[in-house]
Design a protein around this nucleic acid. Structure first.
Lengths: 201, 201, 201, 201
DNA sequence: TGCTAAGCGAGACGGTACGTCCAGTCTTTTG
DNA sequence: CAAAAGACTGGACGTACCGTCTCGCTTAGCA
């Protein structure tokens, strides 16, 4: 029903085995030697899978890197049982920790280097980056419904401010993506009136 | 301290001409063919300057790219004669326009690919990215002094939220860094209570 | 020896159609693109016949090339109604014309590249090269019988001199295999005493 | 006058060492594994010279093969102190022995596979094949002067018959290029009247 | 009729080699 | 004597064919 590959395809089926072996080797190289060593040649050598077969699965080294990074993804789904502010704080905290490692830079580098129009790149963005952003949107929507957050003028802009801050630190490197950032962001979003209140009273 | 080139150094003097020609070629390649084509070989070929000479001036292709990007930089100094919110809006608007072009991606790519610890990279970050951020800090500080902005819990986090949003859009590509974003960010920072006050019942 | 296809074998019979289509495509490629492009992949693509089926008919690309070249062969059977010297001249003339085209080189290349011990190669040699040589032998034998040619010390060597000259020009390329060569060879064989007669002492 | 590289060229000079190492490896492969294994990759591997450097010296594997074959060439210069018929016999005998080995086939294969228009190919032909032919021409010219050979109607055709016979045997493989062939050729050229005179009525 | 062997297309596989690009380094000549 | 220029090593790129191997389907003789 859902899958359109239903008509029993002819020809020798792709070897899931080969794909898996290449993937595994790619992940290993990514972790041990870094993104710079993740070359098709190296993966072919390490995995025993031939280069043409690797190219049949991923159209270049960047795609393979993206696939490997997705596979390494820690997944930070929002916990919906918490109150919105706590939920956002938890998610951001987890993201900060994940991005503080080498992986954060690798994701950023990969994203920067990838062909922005390729389907694979889009999938990567959705899977690795934007899924968190969408989780955040759900949290904020709930918060608004709960009345603990004012309706923002531009929800997309707000989301980009939240998750962009994190990325910005990873990319620019002026400050580490430390957990304190997560707290600060949540505070900025949920209690901006802190300072305003001063003259208010 | 006072230049150590004072004693008329021995040997053939470096050719400022060669440096200039290489730089010019690098900029041309950057504009016409993109960052991906900005290789040392290509610059050597196009400029007629030999590879070792290029390496004497920049220690690798990334540095050359950064140098070329700095040279292309449009500079968006904050206008201090405006009221803070207008000043920030003007700066962000200009940044949005600058980043909407190819150059935004190029800066992001370069930053992502560069060795984060190299001095050159740090200089590039300061010159191209963080200078805007510091200008923003000045604006916000003034705004706080003027009482039109509550004291933020974490000024650095706030700044990263502002400028990171822009970068995030460029990198992730889910939405363009359109001028509307600039307005939305300013609104979010300066009038977060907008929505709260109304329905606050 | 006795059996072969006598017991009507079970299973689906090989498709003469497929064989023909592959052959046709191979010939076309040979003519249009040259021997270098005559690959199994290309033939499979162009003919719609699958690679395994092609391999079932010919054990490698060289054999397929030989088969295609045989198919293109113009056949130069000796005309036995002519006097021997005229007959040889006619045959050589025809061969010169045939070899002057691309085909001469292709035959030479194929022959050079083929496994010299394979049965298919032997068949190709017999069919394409040596059949002419045997026709030549018949002509010369008749000529000897007629008394217009002295008994050669080594008939095989003489034949190789005649037909080898042609091949040599094709392979070495220093001179074209022009029809004049045919005349010169016949003259050399049948009238070597031309110059000798003078001092004939 | 002769060398045109007279202006002392700038930059690092090509490494004769690298060239020699590659050549040596190529020869070794040619002898041990045959022409089929003489690939650029294999030579690079065996010699320690990088592929780009090999390509700088020879534009493809065929050229390298030709160069290696030239280097292996045994050189069969005609001995001018002998009487012409003996000299030709000696040269042909030496050629027969040389071509009986693997090298004969390799030369033929290389020649057949090479781009016939390339300068390198022409040089190879001149050096390996046609030089013998020219030596033969000198011998025959002397023989004519000496009156022991009738003036041929077409000297080029005659030469091609002599040397083509050898090649033909190597290529077609119907008979080995045995020393007896050398004798038979010389006899055919110098004593064609043998048979005629006897029964010649 | 129904089983089963063989051939068929499609197409992926492990390999090998190709020829090219680029990074950096080394070695000359030149200013 | 250091800068300039050119050739170098080494590594990866992405592609072309090779010959082989499943697959699912088709065609036939044999039971």
């Amino acid at each position: 029903m859902s899958q359109d590959s239903s008509p029993p395809r002819r020809g020798r089926p792709p070897s899931a085995e080969a794909r898996k072996k290449a993937m595994r080797a790619a992940r290993a190289i990514l972790i041990e030697d870094g993104l710079g060593r993740l070359t098709i040649d190296a993966v072919a050598q390490a995995s025993g899978v031939s280069k043409p077969t690797i190219y049949r699965n991923w159209s270049n080294a960047q795609e393979l890197a993206m696939a490997a990074l997705i596979d390494t993804a820690p997944d930070a789904p929002a916990d919906t049982t918490l109150p919105p502010d706590r939920a956002l704080a938890a998610q951001l905290d987890q993201l900060c920790r994940a991005f503080a490692s080498t992986r954060g830079r690798q994701v950023a580098m990969t994203l920067a280097a990838a062909d922005p129009d390729s389907e694979f790149t889009k999938a990567f963005r959705n899977r690795v980056i934007l899924s968190c952003r969408e989780a955040g949107r759900a949290i904020l929507t709930q918060a608004i419904k709960d009345g603990i957050l004012p309706e923002p003028g531009d929800m997309d802009a707000l989301l980009d401010m939240i998750y962009g801050a994190l990325f910005f630190r990873v990319l620019a490197g002026h400050l580490p993506p430390e957990p304190a950032l997560a707290k600060a962001i949540v505070a900025q979003i949920f209690e901006p009136q802190l300072g305003t209140e001063g003259p208010a009273r």
